[in-house]
Nucleic acid binder design. Structure first.
Length: 896
RNA sequence: GCGGAUGUGGCGGAACUGGUAGACGCGCCAGACUCAAAAUCUGGUUUCCGUAAGGAAGUGUGGGUUCGAUUCCCUCCAUCCGCACCA
């Protein structure tokens, strides 16, 4: 098991019992081992084609100021995997960096008159120190921040490649505009339709912005999800729904009654329910539809209606939650299958311009939104799909639309068909019908996924490397002129984009013609920065975006770990980026993350004073009053109400600063607690009692290891003695090897909480085995079993509590450092039991259990079960009808 | 509104593919050690009835499939995450 046959030599051990029994001092120990790892460059990763690689990555943090418990949890999990995989012989890459551009730095600049760069780099320094005190097995030599010019230069370079490859374009799109601050607002800065600072009613403005053609990969991003079998199903499902593939028909309705100034003869729309066309009672188009704008130009009431709708904001959620409203334009749309029927055409607030063609037909009987709309505007509701077991005449739509299966009715040539067939027939009819010289409709596939708008009207982001020239248009900045650096002399004393009002920065000469021209003043969405950082980690100092040899070796990331809140956007954008980088020759693969894991959040109780203000856990003392938990304010001794358990947040003041925990209890305790109990994908509740429990366990391991030293073999080569142990020792050996197997399994499957439980079990077995004080009567073979158990325990603890692991390793007098040791292998022979205990049920109720040889036949098991006292008594006078025997599992007697 | 998840003792949770519900930890109770406390160690701890043996109920709600359901299906309830300019 020990690759070097390491002796557990008494000579190298401190035999002074008093010293042995000292309490484990995490302060001194953790700093010392962190220094040892740093000096030995234990976690430095280098490409080595002769070895299998393993790339572990946790989502890099935004440098907000200090790390929070969510980081502690995330990075602990990644570190366990990294250390375990390294012990398993993999060449591990485990890097760290900073997602350093973003709005908070600009907000800090405005509030505290500090430059975003200064603020960001100071935060990084603080957080790096905090992370280092966690004892993570990171290769710090690869660290970078996305706001480093060396990083964003490469991002700009790749943007130029994407531009050349036709993956980037400009188009108009709307933003939230604060008319008082003259600033573009993020969705989170719009509260109830008003700007967060100014309080002004937010307006929508159209701006020309840059877009990445992610929609070009809609189908690929969707189908490739199937191959991502090491991703959580829920994340794949969310992405599938987000991409939103739907098969339908793109069709045109002939317009009638249009005013003279409207040239359009038809209205194009997309539908997936063309089977329900006969139930159509209106058409509706988005407030941003070109025809809406055209009509509004001549109709002040419509103008007012559109203005009103725009006040709800730009977010999908706001739009869909808003009450459904429409404006009857007076236009009519001729029904494609019933030319005498003219449907009213509305402008409606719930029709999205970004989806399909920005216009729909409404079939109220079979779509809830359409039904709500129809009831409000007193439109016809005609059911055209009727459940097979319902009578058409009796089928009435009430408050709920019918969206289920059924047979077509009231639908002319579609009557009697099922939904699928009706769709097919209706589509065929539309394809064969001519309207103004073209088929009236055609089958198409539509995706919900929209192109990715990357323009931001902000300073603290990566400048988009193009120049606008009056003569040449949009001109890319030549790569030799990169990076386009952010100017440092900017002010934040007024709202708006400092790049735009900077006196000189944007004025440049056109790279093509030399005439006066202007730089693009938009910067990238910070999601761009985080869409390829994992690739940059492979060759962080390369003069190109990536070094091909490095990415070919290290990518894809084998295990990526982060919050579920990134399940859609960040992961989807990264998947797109990898494809775009593939197309532009930077990498040879399409999928960045082979394995994905989404961890839960860290929550804490909330505390509220009588006055209604929130109190932080540090300001509250918990007391036990007649068995009930009560909280008292440490500020004024007044009682405090214990509130609900919520995600740690500044607004609720229920945060715990990891630094306090790391100083008081040590990194190993914090790490152990983060891994214990709660399954990693679920939320965890931070409690003082839990931390203290974890801390006691650290001490317990230390005590067990130090106490065991007196009972360990004096000589080397004890492994040879293991074959001849006593029963008690054999049990210990079984427990050791079982734990070894299970913990390995659990870490492989990221079930850290189960691994923790298995380690507790081994600890309990070891404690039970330990001879009483001064007993020195262990046989040599039993000493060997104890040595083996201690060694295995230390190995198991190592990835989770690495400092304690190293300290115990050293205390046991073993060679080298634990971080360099290979994972031990378990002996399968020790895991086989020759008897099993199975439950015996009568009519599904457990009545007794049966311990029997594993080899017993079904008949033997059945016979033995029926003879059990409890079974005989419980059966009484009942007749046995049937006996179900599942080998090694259960016996169920069916009796009446 | 749309999409995704979660729900098991006093608490966090475990239960492999439908096969003994409550592993492991926290807390609590009792005991040992101690002048005492802390720490540590030993034992107990789902609820109800019972001195006990044992019995009954029990995995958010209500139903269903099955010899057998925490696990599969349907209904409802509660909580959480995402919704494209927060990161």
């Amino acid at each position: 098991m020990h690759d070097r046959g390491t002796p557990l030599s008494l000579l190298s051990r401190n035999t002074d019992m008093e010293l042995n029994m000292e309490r484990y001092n995490h302060r001194e120990t953790e700093a010392r081992w962190q220094q040892v790892w740093a000096e030995r460059e234990t976690f430095r990763a280098e490409e080595d084609p002769s070895r299998a690689k393993y790339y572990v990555l946790e989502m890099f943090p935004y440098p907000s100021g200090r790390i929070h418990m969510g980081h502690v949890r995330n990075y602990t999990m990644g570190d366990v995997v990294a250390r375990y995989k390294a012990a398993r012989g993999f060449n591990v890459l485990h890097p760290m960096g900073w997602d350093a551009f973003g709005m908070p730095a600009e907000n800090a600049a405005m509030e505290n008159n500090v430059h975003p760069a200064a603020w960001t780099y100071e935060n990084i320094d603080t957080m790096r120190t905090q992370l280092k005190s966690m004892g993570l097995s990171l290769d710090w030599s690869r660290e970078f921040a996305t706001c480093d010019p060396e990083y964003y230069q490469q991002e700009q370079s790749m943007f130029l490649d994407f531009l050349e490859a036709g993956l980037v374009y400009r188009k108009n799109s709307k933003v939230n505009w604060d008319p008082v601050d003259h600033t573009v607002l993020a969705n989170e800065q719009v509260i109830d339709g008003r700007g967060w600072r100014s309080g002004a009613l937010v307006e929508q403005r159209e701006l020309t912005q840059w877009f990445f053609k992610i929609s070009e990969y809609s189908d690929d991003l969707l189908t490739a999800l199937e191959g991502l079998d090491q991703w959580p199903d829920k994340v794949r499902l969310m992405q599938r729904n987000w991409i939103g593939r739907s098969e339908g028909v793109r069709m045109r309705f002939e317009l009638a009654d249009q005013p003279d100034f409207v040239a359009d003869k038809d209205l194009e729309l997309f539908t997936t329910r063309h089977d329900t066309l006969f139930g159509a009672s209106f058409c509706a188009m988005s407030i941003e539809h070109p025809l809406s704008a055209q009509l509004a130009a001549e109709d002040t009431a419509l103008q007012a209606f559109i203005e009103d709708c725009r006040k709800v904001g730009t977010s999908q959620e706001d739009i869909e939650r808003a009450e459904k409203k429409g404006y009857d334009t007076g236009l009519k749309a001729r029904h494609p299958f019933n030319r005498d029927l003219l449907l009213p055409v509305f402008v409606a607030n719930f029709v999205l311009m970004d989806y399909g063609t920005g216009a729909i037909f409404g079939c109220p009987a079979h779509d809830q939104r359409d039904l709500d709309f129809a009831r409000k505007y007193k439109l016809n509701v005609l059911p055209v799909v009727v459940p097979a077991d319902e009578n058409v005449a009796d089928f009435v739509i009430g408050e709920e639309a019918y969206v289920g299966e059924g047979l077509l009715a009231n639908s002319g040539f579609l009557d009697g068909l099922d939904v699928e067939t009706a769709k097919d027939q209706a589509a065929q009819r539309l394809e064969l019908t001519d309207l103004f010289g073209a088929p009236q409709g055609e089958r198409t596939v539509n995706y919900r996924l929209r192109d990715w708008g990357v323009s931001r009207q902000r300073y603290w982001g990566c400048p988009i490397p193009v120049v606008h020239c009056k003569k040449c248009g949009v001109v890319p900045v030549p790569k030799s002129d990169l990076p386009v650096k952010l100017p440092e002399d900017v002010s934040f004393d007024q709202p708006g984009n400092p790049l735009q009002r900077h006196p000189s920065w944007k004025h440049v000469s056109c790279p093509t013609c030399g005439a006066d021209a202007e730089r693009e003043t938009d910067t990238f969405d910070t999601f761009v920065d985080s869409s390829w950082y994992f690739a940059r980690f492979c060759s962080p100092r390369s003069a190109d975006p990536v070094d091909r040899a490095a990415v070919d070796y290290w990518l894809p990331v084998d295990q990526y770990i982060g919050g579920v809140e990134h399940a859609i956007l960040h992961l989807l954008y990264s998947r797109f980026f990898m494809r775009a980088m593939h197309r532009t020759g930077h990498v040879a693969i399409d999928e960045p993350f082979e394995g994905m894991f989404t961890q839960g959040m860290v929550n804490h109780e909330t505390y509220r004073a009588k006055a209604g203000n929130w109190l932080s856990p540090a300001e509250v003392s918990i007391v036990d009053e007649a068995g009930a938990r009560k909280a008292v304010s440490l500020l004024n001794s007044e009682p405090v109400q214990i509130g609900s358990i919520e995600k740690m947040s500044k607004s609720r003041r229920n945060t715990i600063d990891p630094t306090d925990i790391l100083e008081t209890y040590g990194a190993d305790t914090a790490r152990w607690f983060m891994l214990s109990d709660s399954p990693p994908e679920r939320d965890v509740i931070w409690t003082e009692a839990g931390v203290e429990g974890a801390h006691r366990f650290v001490q317990r391991i230390w005590r067990l290891v130090t106490e065991s030293i007196a009972h360990l073999p004096a000589d080397a080569g004890w492994e040879t003695l293991l074959g001849n142990v006593s029963d008690a020792s054999l049990d210990l050996r079984k427990a050791s090897h079982k734990a070894l197997k299970e913990v390995g399994n659990d870490i492989d499957n990221l079930r850290f909480n189960r691994a923790v439980a298995r380690i507790y079990e081994l600890t309990n077995a070891l404690a039970a085995f330990m001879p009483a004080n001064n007993a020195t009567d262990l046989m040599p073979a039993d000493k060997a079993a104890l040595a083996e158990a201690c060694s295995i325990l230390v190995h198991l603890v190592g990835p989770m509590m690495p400092h304690l692991g190293e300290e115990c390793w050293e205390k046991l007098g073993l060679d080298g450092i634990l971080a360099d040791q290979p994972w031990p292998t378990f002996d399968p022979a020790l895991l086989v039991e020759d008897t099993v205990t199975i439950a015996v049920q009568i009519n599904g109720k457990r009545r007794d259990e049966l311990t029997i040889s594993r080899q017993s036949s079904k008949e033997e098991v059945e016979a033995a079960a029926l003879q059990l006292d409890n079974v005989v008594r419980a059966l009484g006078s009942m007749q046995v009808r049937k006996v179900i025997v599942v080998p090694e599992r259960i016996v169920n007697v069916v009796a009446t």
